[in-house]
Design a protein around this nucleic acid. Sequence first.
DNA 1: ACGTTACTTAGCGGCTCAGCTAATCTTCAG
DNA 2: CTGAAGATTAGCTGAGCCGCTAAGTAACGT
Lengths: 98, 98
Amino acid sequence: MDAARKIEELTTVLTALSHPARRQILLTIWFRGGEMASGDIAARFQHSWPTTTRHLRVLEEAELVVQEKQGRTRVYRVNAKKLEAVKQWLAWFDKKTE
Amino acid sequence: MDAARKIEELTTVLTALSHPARRQILLTIWFRGGEMASGDIAARFQHSWPTTTRHLRVLEEAELVVQEKQGRTRVYRVNAKKLEAVKQWLAWFDKKTE
DNA sequence: ACGTTACTTAGCGGCTCAGCTAATCTTCAG
DNA sequence: CTGAAGATTAGCTGAGCCGCTAAGTAACGT
């Protein structure tokens, strides 16, 4: 992957993680077995359902979650692999200055 | 530290890291020995100097850098410890679902 | 077919972000 | 003291974010 694209990808992921509600959504799905329906997620948050839907959209665009339609519910799954990009960036600061 | 404060702190750090210029600033300082003057930093970026100053302010508010006045230059240093908060959050996704 | 459930899309208002130029402040040199 | 260098602050503009309510779409139950 070319460098510019990698930077953009990391920006998208970090922007998605920068909102507390979105981080909470990820953790909530993760600790409830890795997948949850849209409504179950929305029910656990104080925000209105449409607001949560938009947060889910942001997470999806960052590929931090994937979505699958099942009848009239939509199931979201965490894509934890996408967090690797962040870990790798942070690792620069383990490599010593010297 | 109470939970709400911790969340807020992480939000501030992640927001600071979400801009490519700010990540680049951190890496630039880090790999040039851990400290750099404001002007040296600004000279390496395409943005105007005031824009870079503001990015530095954001990093400083997130405590990702610290600043020290030395004569008429201002020296910025990376505070890598602050990145621990992010690593710790990411670690939730190592703890298995089951 | 019809209503209900599950969810998303549309669209608005308020706020913050990120870029710029111009002006200001502070320190050093002579 | 005066001027220049180093850096920040002030203030503007355009763009995007985040909350909401209202309206729309899709699938299920009967």
